[in-house]
Design a protein around this nucleic acid. Structure first.
Lengths: 252, 252
DNA sequence: CCTGTTCTTGCACGTTTCTGCATGTATCGT
DNA sequence: ACGATACATGCAGAAACGTGCAAGAACAGG
């Protein structure tokens, strides 16, 4: 990870969570606390954050922008996205889920790759507009705002009309017992419908999803072909998944 | 590999992965790090990337935001959009076409207005994601990139399933004899299908469209309820339209 | 075809920057 | 007040950087 990139990451973190704990960030990024402190010191000198004991706070106290516009996805998601994009064969048909990781996949698709992308996410579709090679097929339906995808009966029905080689599935939780989960029932149903239309389903599981679970189950482990993650290869949760017969593709 | 080709590759990499690590690229392309650094230095000098220790990052978010602000519609379109947004009644159902003017309408909708927006444009749908009141229904289908809307048989079929109070139609040409025209046959057909599903159809006709014509006719004058334009009220073309019985809503 | 010029590329060298560790100091919670 | 934690500073090794230089390719003109 580049030093300047790390600095951006810190600011982003500050905007999204309203605070930075030096120790936590150091552990998360796998660097020494000294480096984090040095970065924070610099940012504070530039007036971009307020240095406090143990970490840093935003310079303007109350303003926490939860919907901080992440123009570029964090490093882990990008690595997962790059591996996922590599699964798309020239001339192939891929169903792309919604969510930030799926958006990163759309951006990671090589520009010259000629393929068909089916998606129920207007955001993903919009991101692919300037992709010269990709043919985009949009699945319509009622748009659920919190996840920015088309769901509901109409969307499921539209999904029945397509067949694909590959489905790149985004979830909010990946847990050995709870399985693949997401926060909305309609969304889960939509994901199931999409998985049923693809020969292979791979899960986009950036490390922050690993070991967590949400309210609604999407698919059982048998329903997927594999999982792409940037978590450590010998992460206990990942080991458990592998023991359950899940093919794990490492993204590093 | 040609030098210019390499430069493109770097920009492409930057767009896809959000960062460039000089060392990695040098290894990947089988050239020295010096050459990569030289390229990056040039690109940075042209303002196409931001040079940092170890590689490069995309131009700073501030610049990106600036560009986004530049994409804000010109004044004329905004005035047309404001009038169009005023036609949407609380609780009403409006079909929003694609294109920049329609996008301006989406942005001009009062945040608290509760209404249903039906659209075949992923861009418009994405713009409405942070609109608290609007219920968004997306029409799916093959996405035509040059106009960024879903078209084709599937989209027309999806359109048959909805009914609306109002259709805000975007066109590329408004001409007394040629009528309402656009540059693509599929697109024209889609617009006709949408018009057939709405009680009223109003044309978004910012002044630069007035008096011009494109290849394919969308609708005859009898097919629309009115036209919204920021052109001078006594513009000869506007007068001609009024003489043909078209209701003209002035935007100023 | 030959020659001089220009551009590109890789290498060598000295310089700058980054990073982690060690040391001593400051701050916090109890 | 005391232990624990966080901090600043200095230092050293590693990595990245810029510059100058020379070899080679591409090119234009004779």
């Amino acid at each position: 990870m580049l030093a300047a990139e790390r600095r951006d990451h810190l600011l982003d973190l500050l905007a999204r969570e309203g605070k930075i704990v030096a120790k936590d960030v150091a552990a998360e990024l796998g660097i020494s606390e000294d480096s984090v402190r040095r970065d924070l010191r610099e940012l504070a000198a530039e007036g971009r954050c307020q240095r406090v004991y143990g970490g840093a706070l935003p310079v303007s106290p109350a303003v926490v922008d939860y919907r901080a516009r992440q123009t570029v996805a964090p490093d882990g998601k990008r690595r997962v996205a790059a591996v996922a994009a590599g699964l798309v064969r020239p001339g192939g048909v891929v169903i792309l889920d919604g969510g930030t990781t799926a958006l990163a996949v759309a951006r990671a698709l090589p520009p010259e790759l000629a393929c068909t992308v089916v998606t129920h996410s207007p955001t993903v579709a919009a991101a692919l507009l300037d992709h010269p090679g990709a043919e985009v097929f949009l699945l319509g339906g009622r748009v659920f705002k919190h996840s920015a995808v088309a769901c509901g009966a109409a969307a499921v029905e539209a999904a029945q009309q397509v067949s694909a080689d590959l489905f790149l599935l985004g979830v909010t939780g990946v847990h050995p017992e709870a399985g693949l989960t997401t926060g909305d029932a309609e969304e889960a149903a939509m994901k199931r419908a999409l998985a049923a239309r693809a020969a292979d389903t791979y899960v986009l599981a950036s490390s922050e999803k690993i070991g967590t679970a949400s309210r609604f189950t999407v698919l059982p482990w048998e329903g997927i072909s594999g999982l792409i993650t940037d978590a450590a290869p010998h992460d206990p949760v990942v080991e458990q998944l592998r023991a359950r017969g899940v093919e794990v593709l490492a993204a590093d």
